[in-house]
Design a protein around this nucleic acid. Structure first.
Lengths: 300, 300
DNA sequence: AAAAGCGGTGCAGGAAACGCACCGCTCATT
DNA sequence: AATGAGCGGTGCGTTTCCTGCACCGCTTTT
């Protein structure tokens, strides 16, 4: 779009770090780009780049402008989607930042359901932990976030929050499999694998362990991949920890999942949200609603 | 600003009702403007004007675009004010929609205080009733609204709400002047003037009158001007009704004000607010804060 | 039937943006 | 200390894009 050209230019310069490199990226000469950025700054009334010997860098005013640019882009995308929605066809792109646990089953299922009705809508799904997700929202890199235990929460507008007890994942022949609810001390006595402290489940386990005689969580294997851990328990007959939304509850091959007693480990909080105050594009807004109802069904 | 040119064009066409008239207003030829609006629609992917035999008119998509334009403009003004604020000088323009009662004393005092510290900030003050004020906010025609008993409240984000009992305004020699709190029935027995039903004070009086034997408010003079009514009581020795924030409490010449008993007439609610979710320009935001503290002091 | 007003279009002139060559500067490398 | 590479900025000729003019087809008004 025409009136966003200047914004492309500014973002290209920020990415490249110098006017010349940005000009090369945009397939124009440095002089042309230089004149345009100068004109932009003149019209704004303030310089937005510091001129350094080896290039340029955003100054504080530029940071404001950058945020404005991202907001404008997002708002224009919303406008386009709303206009498109008037003519009946739902188009657009939905970008989601979510915890890893939701990648194997929950998100694919939800996206497939949505796309069954609206073929014109495309998706991007990014794995983000609870810190990154909020950053993604505030830079308009993602429309929707669905994460366990987000941290800052200031820009995060919670749409739905559900609780999920941490579950123990183990082989069907594990002695603990016969119990309907598992105590943490029984787990810590045998070999177990656990996610790294970036993940919400581990944070809850660490907090719970501090109240036991074990004091700390000491897994035999620590991993970033829930997939890996789920498969590992089949080999060593160890146990793993995961939120049930990341598990296929029926028809799981070889392993079973049982909830940890909430007396020992606090349940995890799964937050569905968006950037505070932002009006989402039509497609994203509708998908957010679908996720909200799906999660509320999970909570029952 | 360059990238807002297309928006000027769209707004000019909406105002003029036809491309040719708008072109004349903008001092360009109709063909140039025609081509530009066509290009704009082509880039957007949708037409935003209905072509009629006698001109053009916005279609539903155009209504969305118009709102987008207003939002963009307001957001750009906010950006400029934030950038200006970085360099220390506070500039900008604050537009306020407020009830008439605040015009004589409260707003002039507040604006003068603010401008004493920030000479670069200019103001526009518009008299708006409780319906118009919200419309002003949602079309970005005003930044701040300060009105009694606003109606819809959906787009209205309340920052401060204070209660003010309706006061009786009368000559100092009026028999009622000796009382510290006045009953409604005493007022309705003598000649009184009242504002028209557009105003919050009248709405409260009407509601209160329905509970009395008088049933309705029947003023000897009905007026839109609180100024007029305040002066009128000096001539006929009638009584008038007004919120105390519109009165000069000390050093008033010739008249006194006494509160109506809140047993008879519900106190009026004065709402200070802005458009829900909007981030105001720096100057407007600061002035809003000043108003908020000033009102809270009034409430004590 | 004619005139007036509307949106839209072909064509030529003009304004604005661009590419090229070059300047002054800083800094890493020699 | 010298030098060259890389940077932002500038003068000038060229290209591209937009504008203005004249005109068309259409509908409504007179």
């Amino acid at each position: 779009m025409r009136h966003l050209q200047d914004f492309d230019m500014v973002e290209a310069i920020i990415r490249a770090g110098s006017i010349r490199k940005a000009a090369e990226d945009m397939n124009i000469t440095a002089s042309a780009l230089n004149r345009r950025i100068n004109r932009f700054e003149e019209e704004l009334g303030y310089e937005i780049f510091e001129r350094l010997p080896r290039g340029v860098r955003l100054n504080p005013a530029g940071e404001l402008v950058l945020h404005h640019i991202r907001a404008q882009r997002s708002d224009f995308a919303r406008l386009q989607s709303q206009v498109a929605d008037l003519s009946g066809v739902r188009r657009g792109h939905v970008s989601i930042a979510c915890s890893q646990a939701l990648l194997p089953y929950f998100m694919p299922d939800q996206i497939a359901r949505y796309r069954a009705e609206h073929r014109g809508v495309t998706f991007s799904v990014k794995t983000r932990d609870r810190v990154e997700a909020e950053h993604d929202l505030s830079t308009f890199a993602s429309d929707i976030a669905l994460v366990f235990e987000p941290q800052h929460m200031v820009d995060f507008e919670v749409v739905v929050q559900i609780q999920q007890p941490v579950h123990v994942v183990m082989r069907a022949d594990n002695p603990l499999a016969s119990q309907t609810e598992i105590r943490l001390r029984d787990c810590l006595e045998q070999a177990y694998v656990a996610p790294s402290p970036r993940y919400g489940a581990r944070v809850l386990l660490d907090a719970a362990a501090r109240k036991t005689t074990y004091r700390t969580i000491e897994p035999v294997v620590e991993s970033e991949s829930f997939d890996f851990m789920r498969h590992y328990v089949l080999h060593e007959n160890a146990i793993a920890f995961q939120f049930p939304i990341g598990l296929k509850m029926v028809g799981a091959r070889g392993y079973v999942a049982r909830p940890l007693s909430t007396r020992d480990v606090a349940p995890g909080n799964l937050f569905l949200g968006q950037l505070r105050g932002r009006i989402l594009p039509v497609a994203s807004g509708r998908f957010l609603q679908q996720l909200a109802t799906a999660l509320q069904a999970h909570a029952l």
